[in-house]
Structures are given as C-alpha cells and as structure tokens.
Amino acid sequence: MEVVNAVTPGPEQIAAFFGSGEDGPFVMINLLKFKPHATYADGSEPELTGREAYARYGTAVQACVAAVGGRQVYAGAVTGLMIGEVGELWDMAALVEYPSLAAMMQMIQSPEYQAIEKHRHAGLAGQLNIRTRPLGR
C-alpha cells in the first residue's frame, strides 16, 4: 500500500469526493503531518513551527465547522503504532463530524474559512483525509 500525504486535493479528487452520491452525516479522519517550520506565502513568522501555525487554523476552524452543523469529535497527538508499518508516523489525528457533503462544501467556500486556510497551508507538510460513514447506512 502506497501512502501519499498531500495538503490540497487535486480537481479529480474533489470531483470524486463531492460527487460520490453519498449523503448524510459522516466523520472525516484527518491524519496530519506538520512542517518543522511554518512557511507562510508572504514569508512572515518564520519562527513558528508548523504545529503552531496549524494550531491557529485548528482553533479557528472549529467555529467554521459549528456554523454548518458539524463538530470536532476528537483531536490528539499520534504517539505510537501498534499494527502495520509506515515510514513515518503522522503527528496528529483529528475526527470531525459533518452533517453532509453539502455542509462541508459550504464551510470550505465560506469567507471565514478562506481567511484561516493560510495557517493550514503554512503548517502542514501533508495529510490524509478519510471520509467514513456510520455502519448500517
């Protein structure tokens, strides 16, 4: 199994994700890998770590998620691996529940989200976003 961390999905991934035909509540599993140092597009704040830059995003995005009826279920540091192998562990895992794909799309298109996304880009080396749905649906 090949694993490729990315920060931004490509057009095909976006179309497949939001055009999947699935609807209803889902939980997004976010596996996050931080940059050693934040890299803002304008070169500002080079003293910040990637984790610190992402923490700015993480704090602010909770209001964006709540505004569309979602909620953060869990967030924590990755501290070990019991089964399997990966070349390098992720730094953090977060679970975020959304009421629908439309709600998530509304959030990422909102001006509030667009204003904070710079912190996400500055802090992340890569991530995996895995959509899950409740069993029995």
Rank of each mutant, 00 (worst) to 15 (best):
M1I: 10
E2Y: 08
E2M: 12
E2G: 04
V3Q: 12
V3M: 13
T8P: 05
G10H: 09
P11F: 14
Q13Y: 00
A15F: 08
A16Y: 10
F17I: 04
G19N: 11
S20C: 13
G21Q: 10
E22Q: 15
F26D: 07
F26R: 05
F26E: 00
N30C: 05
L31Y: 05
L32R: 07
F34S: 04
F34I: 07
K35D: 03
P36W: 08
P36F: 01
A41N: 03
A41D: 12
A41M: 08
G43I: 08
G43Y: 09
S44L: 09
P46R: 11
L48N: 08
T49N: 07
G50N: 09
E52D: 13
E52W: 04
Y54K: 00
Y54M: 01
R56M: 12
Y57H: 03
G58E: 02
G58V: 06
G58D: 06
T59N: 13
T59M: 13
A60D: 07
V61Y: 03
Q62I: 11
C64K: 00
V65F: 08
G69D: 02
G70K: 09
Q72M: 14
Y74D: 00
A75R: 00
A75C: 12
A77M: 13
T79K: 14
G80E: 06
G80A: 13
L81N: 14
L81C: 15
I83L: 15
E85V: 12
G87A: 12
E88A: 12
W90K: 06
M92A: 14
M92T: 12
A93L: 02
A94I: 06
A94P: 06
L95K: 08
V96L: 04
Y98Q: 03
S100C: 10
S100D: 05
L101A: 09
A102Q: 14
A103G: 06
A103D: 03
M104S: 02
Q106Y: 07
Q106K: 15
Q106N: 13
Q106C: 10
I108R: 04
S110W: 04
P111E: 13
Y113F: 15
Y113N: 04
Q114W: 07
A115F: 10
I116N: 01
I116A: 01
K118V: 10
K118S: 09
K118H: 11
H119Y: 11
H119A: 07
H119L: 08
H119R: 04
H119S: 03
A122G: 06
A122N: 09
A122W: 00
L124E: 01
A125Q: 10
A125N: 05
L128P: 04
L128E: 03
L128Y: 02
R131S: 07
R131I: 00
R133Y: 12
R133A: 15
P134K: 15
G136L: 11
G136S: 13
R137L: 15
